[in-house]
Amino acid sequence: MYQPILGLKGSSDRVQIDDRLQYQPTVYEFYTAASDFTTDGYKRLYDAVQYVQSRGISQIVLHHPMKFENYHSDVVAPEKYYPGLYRFIETTTEQLIRLGHDLNVQVLVHGGYSGAEVQHMVGLYPSVEAARQAVYDRLDRFKDEGGSHIMFENSIAPVFAYGHPDQEDEILAHHYRLAFDTSHCFIELHGDNAGLQRSLKHLAPDVVHYHLVDSLGQTHDSLQLGTGKINWAKVLPLLNPGATSIYEINLKDQNDCAEQMASHRYLVNLCHQLKEE
């Protein structure tokens, strides 16, 4: 069975990094922003990755920036209507892939986000299927460039969502290295634990990284484990034991990862309980 590992998330800011490193995590995931892709920002990010590596952490993930100007970084955005966003996603993904190859770290790109904005973007295509195909075409190209250094995360949107067996089969046919956000799938399924469990089991062999996050199953709430409605006792046995993971939890203070650590304690305690049963 999957054994909980300590995976923490923070920015390239040294205060945040040192806060996380005091707990000696196995995995560190960098939250990146547009500011990390200026000339100076990219150098700082590069140096920050090397700093974390110098502290003995070899499993590092670089999360593609979530936003560009007022938009989420939705790969479904057509170049014709969103030229600036389209180019931003292209150039930043290219920079991250280069960093991934140079420093032997992982790059995570979202297959989509959620909300009215992405719904509007999908509506610019002749059909939802055409929008999905545009996403697959783009991710296929990123996969070819990134190889074993890139993975793709599920959305809460009509494109690249987990929880629907037919769409999951489409995704599996592309042989992507998958990142699985538990809350995104749970929300996509409107709080259906059985559906989440089916999805976890179906996709597990192709999952290389998990975002372990609780949720009430309605909106993107990013809750501490044990405070939402996900049945973690049923989730734990379905996780790929060879994958990495982090706790992607909303923090009261970005310089203090207390909620991430509380989530880890919850999962470790639950794992002990399951072994004793």
Rank of each mutant, 00 (worst) to 15 (best):
E188H: 13
E276P: 11
M1P: 13
L200E: 04
G111V: 08
Q273G: 15
I97Y: 00
L196H: 10
E145L: 11
P205C: 08
F88I: 00
E129M: 11
E145T: 10
G7W: 01
P205V: 05
V15P: 07
R132Q: 15
E79D: 11
Y86Q: 00
S215G: 03
G226R: 08
H190C: 10
H175C: 07
Y28F: 13
E188A: 14
L62F: 01
P83K: 00
V213K: 10
L172H: 06
R265G: 07
G111H: 12
L274A: 03
L21C: 08
E153I: 04
D192Y: 01
G242S: 07
D256G: 09
M121G: 03
G226A: 00
Y71W: 10
G123P: 05
M261A: 13
Y31P: 02
A157V: 11
S222L: 13
L189D: 05
L178T: 02
H64L: 12
H72N: 12
R55I: 14
T91R: 08
S199D: 08
L124T: 06
T92R: 03
D102Y: 04
N240D: 05
S155R: 07
T93C: 09
L267E: 03
N193M: 00
S183G: 04
H72R: 12
L124I: 05
F160T: 04
K275H: 14
E170D: 11
A161P: 11
T38W: 10
H120M: 07
A194M: 11
G228N: 15
P237Q: 02
T227Q: 04
L108N: 09
S58N: 09
Y46I: 05
D256Y: 15
L45N: 03
L6N: 05
G217C: 04
G228A: 03
E79S: 06
G242E: 08
E94Y: 12
F30C: 01
D166S: 14
R20S: 15
C271M: 14
D253T: 10
K67G: 15
P237G: 03
D214L: 08
Y23G: 15
L203R: 01
F68A: 06
G147C: 06
F160Q: 06
V76R: 04
V128W: 06
L103N: 09
W232D: 09
A77P: 00
E129V: 09
T92V: 06
H63G: 02
Y31K: 03
E129L: 14
L225W: 08
Q59G: 14
